Simulated scan of single mutants.
Amino acid sequence: MKLFLLLGLLFTVEIALAGNIRTIQVSSKEMRTIYLKLGQSTVLRFKETPKKVVVGNQNYFNVEFIGNDITIQPQGPVKTNLFVYGEYHTFGFILNAGNFSGYDDLVNVSWKSPRMSKPKKIKLSAKTLNKSLKLKSKLNCSLEKVTELKPNFYVLDFSLFNNSKNAINIKDVDLFLTRSKIKLPEQRLIFSGQRIEKNLGIKGRIFFNLKKKEGFTLQFFNKDDVNRLIISRQFL
């Protein structure tokens, strides 16, 4: 009976004195603590080959390279930092050396990649217009749709068609948005061509910002020939 008690006691002491074998993940935003015991060596095992180490207080630590492992043996009860430069990442640790019963024997180290959040799908809100404007010069504008690309940022799609007998230079054509006879700020007009040949058309777009979802007026010019159309809030 006494023999079994003695063996049990020795087994309990052996477990208490044994070190830990654990796996940790290290990232660029986190320093992980390694628990060292005086008179014992601790192995850090990496998936990538360590190239260089920098120890904050190198006088109290003996560090050796063995393949993908780094062995660390403390020379005194000191706490410092350790940086391990691998093939692809830099690992940061806090070395805590003392007479710990729960020290680390072997630490398997892996890199913790940041979680990539899925990009949010942008739901484009498009409103069909089906409205048109005509000028005396027989240049017609067909308004197609207004699309909200992101909050308060829109694009107005339209087509121009030349019903006259002559080509029209796009430099003589202008379209812009106003509210209370004041031109809306931060708007940009683009065309798909430089000339509108007779009996042909081109596409155009107006990009614009709206701080308030309120109606506005589209001004349509060809030299001195002008027409306008109110676009109400229901199309925003």
Rank of each mutant, 00 (worst) to 15 (best):
N81R: 13
N166C: 02
N20V: 15
G92N: 09
T12E: 09
A126G: 02
S28M: 03
L236I: 11
V109W: 10
E87N: 12
V26C: 02
S125F: 06
G102K: 14
L200W: 01
L210N: 05
V78A: 00
N62F: 06
I21E: 15
N166L: 03
S28A: 09
S132V: 00
L44M: 11
K145C: 02
N96Y: 09
L149H: 02
K37A: 13
R228S: 14
K47I: 03
V109K: 11
G8W: 09
E148C: 01
G86S: 15
S232Y: 00
R45Q: 11
K121G: 06
L229R: 09
V43C: 06
G19A: 13
N20T: 15
T128C: 03
R205W: 03
E214C: 00
K112N: 12
R45K: 13
N81E: 10
L5M: 13
I94A: 09
P185T: 05
S27G: 14
P50A: 08
E148H: 00
N222E: 06
G8A: 14
F235I: 05
F221V: 07
L44K: 13
S232E: 05
C141Y: 08
E148R: 10
E48D: 14
V43K: 13
Y154G: 12
E87G: 08
A97C: 12
K183C: 04
L5G: 12
N130A: 03
E148I: 00
L3S: 12
V78G: 03
N209E: 14
F11L: 14
D157C: 00
V146R: 07
Q73Y: 08
I182R: 15
V84Q: 07
E144C: 02
K120P: 00
A126Q: 12
I190R: 08
F93M: 01
N163K: 00
R205A: 02
G76M: 01
S232F: 01
V55M: 12
V53A: 14
L36I: 05
L129I: 05
K211Q: 11
L133Q: 10
V155C: 11
I196W: 05
V107D: 00
I66N: 13
E30M: 04
K223F: 01
Q73K: 15
K203W: 04
F216S: 09
Q187K: 05
V63F: 06
T42M: 03
F235K: 10
I196Y: 00
K79D: 10
S192G: 13
R195Y: 13
V63G: 03
I122Q: 11
A167V: 12
Y88I: 14
L7D: 05
F93W: 02
G67T: 01
S27R: 05
S232H: 04
Y154H: 12
Y154C: 11
Y88C: 04
K51S: 07
L236D: 07
R233P: 03
V107P: 06
V55I: 15
I70E: 04
E87W: 03
L218D: 13
F91A: 14
S125A: 08
S101A: 15
N227P: 03
F207T: 06
K37Q: 12
S113G: 06
S137W: 04
L9S: 13
L3G: 06
T71F: 14
G201N: 10
R115T: 07
L236K: 05
K47R: 15
G67R: 10
F191S: 02
I15T: 09
V107F: 08
I202S: 04
N59S: 09
R179A: 09
